[in-house]
Simulated assay, not measured.
Amino acid sequence: MDHAGRTASSRAQMLSAEEIVSLHRRVMPEFCERIILRYNILRHVSYAQPIGRRALAQSLGESERHVRREENILRTAGLVVVGSDGIRLSKDGEDILWDLGEYVGLLVGTGRLEGLLQQEFGLRQAIVIAGDSDEDEAVKREMARVGACVLRDAISDGDVVAVCGGTTMAELAAHTVPAPGKRNVVVVPARGSLGEDVEKQADTVAALLAKKLGGAYRILNLPDDLGCELAASVAEEPRIREVLDTIKQSRIVVHGVGTAVEMARRRNISPSEIDEIVGLGAVGEAFGFYFDRDGKVVYTTSSLGLRLTDLSAVNTVMCVGGGSSKGHALAAVLYNGFPHIVVTDEGAARAALVAVGDPE
Rank of each mutant, 00 (worst) to 15 (best):
R26T: 14
R68G: 14
H255Y: 10
E273A: 11
S10Y: 11
E94S: 15
P238H: 09
G337R: 02
R293N: 14
P238K: 10
I96W: 05
A190G: 13
V320W: 04
S9G: 09
G165L: 01
S312M: 12
C228F: 12
G52H: 08
A232P: 00
R239T: 07
D2A: 14
R75V: 13
M1I: 15
V297E: 08
A355M: 06
L222N: 02
D358H: 10
V257F: 06
G111L: 09
E237Y: 13
G295H: 05
T301S: 10
E285K: 10
I87N: 00
A138W: 01
V198K: 15
E70Q: 15
F287A: 02
H24M: 15
V188W: 04
Q201K: 14
T259I: 07
A282L: 08
A130T: 03
G165M: 05
A174F: 12
G321I: 01
A313C: 09
D275E: 15
H255G: 09
G192A: 08
P223Y: 06
A4Q: 15
G357N: 10
G86A: 11
I87K: 04
A17N: 14
I277M: 08
L60E: 01
A173P: 03
I247C: 07
V146R: 02
G147L: 05
Y103S: 10
S84D: 14
T167M: 08
A286W: 01
G147C: 08
E137T: 09
G327Y: 04
G214A: 09
P223L: 09
L353V: 04
V283H: 01
D2S: 15
V298H: 03
L208M: 13
E242H: 15
R53L: 15
D245Y: 08
L100D: 02
L151D: 01
K296C: 11
F289D: 06
G192F: 04
R124N: 10
R266F: 13
G347A: 05
E273Q: 11
L213S: 00
G192L: 04
P178F: 08
A130D: 03
H340D: 11
S16R: 12
G101I: 03
A170K: 01
A48R: 15
R112S: 11
G305H: 04
A138M: 05
E19T: 12
F31E: 12
S63H: 12
T301H: 07
L74A: 03
M143V: 09
R218G: 05
R251V: 08
E64I: 07
Q13F: 13
G284T: 06
I41Q: 03
Y290P: 00
Y335H: 05
V163H: 00
A17V: 15
R43A: 13
D203S: 09
Y217G: 05
D136N: 13
Q58V: 01
H340W: 07
A351N: 03
A264V: 05
A173L: 06
L220E: 00
R350D: 00
G93C: 03
L89K: 05
E64H: 11
R350Y: 00
A235W: 01
E236R: 07
G115E: 14
I20H: 08
E102A: 12
E171Q: 13
V243W: 05
L106K: 02
A144Y: 04
E285I: 09
R65C: 07
E94N: 15
L306R: 00
G215I: 03
V150E: 10
S133W: 06
N336P: 02
H44G: 10
L353M: 02
